[in-house]
């Protein structure tokens, strides 16, 4: 199955800014059943793009723009092929827990077991785990994770605008509402508390039918947990499904902080307004670009930061020297 993806990000500034610097994590990964067939990225104003692969294997593009600009647009297009996905077993045997040992666990796993910026234990999370009966995993790891995904799906309403890109999970836990990013962070924190290496996946979802709660015109996020006998297995707590051929993976990390689609800074004093448009279609269907760019809340991308007020600047200078 082929998908054609288009992801447009547009920043508009209230006053001219200069020296924009930006990193982009949008290129779909090419591994397992997913193969990247083509990828193009361009910016307006035009900038020289550079790329590197980060320590998690994500492709990162970056560029800088010296001259003054009031608008910055990033246009990424990809064609991805999703191959045959072998079916998962219904359940695993109970010995699976014992397989989380030093023989099986490697460097990649250890980093996905501790607390990270957004996925960490807190009294609010502990309270939620008590109420939802998720304190201890039930059954084998796969069964327990499926139950966890279901638990989060049942306990939270999907509603955008309640939380922001930088919201800690406590926000969503308090409201019992949130978006894919919040649900992923909650699931990661709980699974890690059970001793299961779990990571954050940012990517795209091909929406089909009304069952999916997430928004079709935005990027998506879910989690992957590591099972010794199966490897990394995906869970989408937003939609209560196991990612199969409809999920396109772009980047993996400990949590959102590792993999924002864009992260940038600029110089100048201006407010910025962010618009994002995402489309994902089976490639047989032609992609229409005309009418889908509209102002959205900065949900899946952090706005660039502008220069500091003078006072804070002085304050930071006073940092301690050893």
């Amino acid at each position: 199955m082929f998908y054609s993806i288009r992801h447009i990000t547009q920043f508009r500034y209230s006053a001219p800014v200069r020296e924009s610097v930006m990193e982009i994590r949008m290129q779909p990964r090419s591994e397992g059943p997913q193969t990247l067939r083509s990828f193009q990225i361009s910016t307006n104003p035009r900038a020289q793009l550079y790329a590197y692969t980060d320590h998690l294997g994500n492709a990162v593009y970056h560029f800088n723009l010296l001259r003054e600009h009031e608008e910055l647009r990033i246009d990424a297009q990809a064609v991805v092929e999703i191959g045959l996905i072998s079916p998962l077993p219904e359940r695993l045997d109970d010995l699976e827990w014992g397989r989380y040992n030093n023989f099986n666990l490697h460097d990649d796993h250890f980093d996905m077991m501790g607390a990270s910026k957004f996925a960490r234990m807190s009294p609010e999370l502990a309270a939620f785990m008590r109420i939802a009966e998720l304190e201890k995993p039930q059954g084998d790891p796969l069964t327990a994770l499926v139950k966890l995904m279901r638990g989060i799906y049942d306990s939270f309403e999907y509603e955008s605008g309640i939380t922001e890109v930088h919201s800690p999970i406590e926000h969503a836990l308090g409201e019992r509402r949130g978006v894919c990013q919040d649900f992923a962070h909650i699931m990661i924190a709980i699974a890690r508390s059970w001793g299961i290496p779990t990571r954050y996946v940012s990517g795209y979802l091909y929406h089909k039918g009304a069952r999916d709660r997430s928004r079709a015109d935005a990027t998506h996020a879910w989690v992957e947990a590591w099972l010794p006998s199966l490897g990394w297995v995906g869970f989408d707590p937003t939609n209560n499904i196991m990612p199969r051929e409809r999920h396109v993976r772009a980047a993996v990390g400990r949590d959102y902080a590792d993999v924002p689609p864009t992260r940038g800074t600029f110089k100048g004093v201006a407010d910025s307004e962010l618009s994002i448009a995402v489309s994902l279609e089976p490639t047989a269907a032609p992609v229409r670009h005309e009418d889908f760019l509209k102002v959205a809340r900065p949900m899946s991308s952090a706005t660039p930061t502008y220069s500091m007020p003078e006072r804070l600047y002085h304050h930071q200078q006073q940092q301690q020297q050893q």
């Binding site: 930006m22 990193e23 970056h62 992260r263 800074t265 930061t305």
Partner: peptide, 21 residues
């Protein structure tokens, strides 16, 4: 600030990527 603390006004955006390169 691009890679580490976003609110840093003391650093240089893009410095780490120049270093990486």
């Amino acid at each position: 600030p691009l890679i580490f603390r976003e609110d840093s006004s003391l650093g240089v955006p893009g410095l780490f990527n120049a270093y990486r390169a």
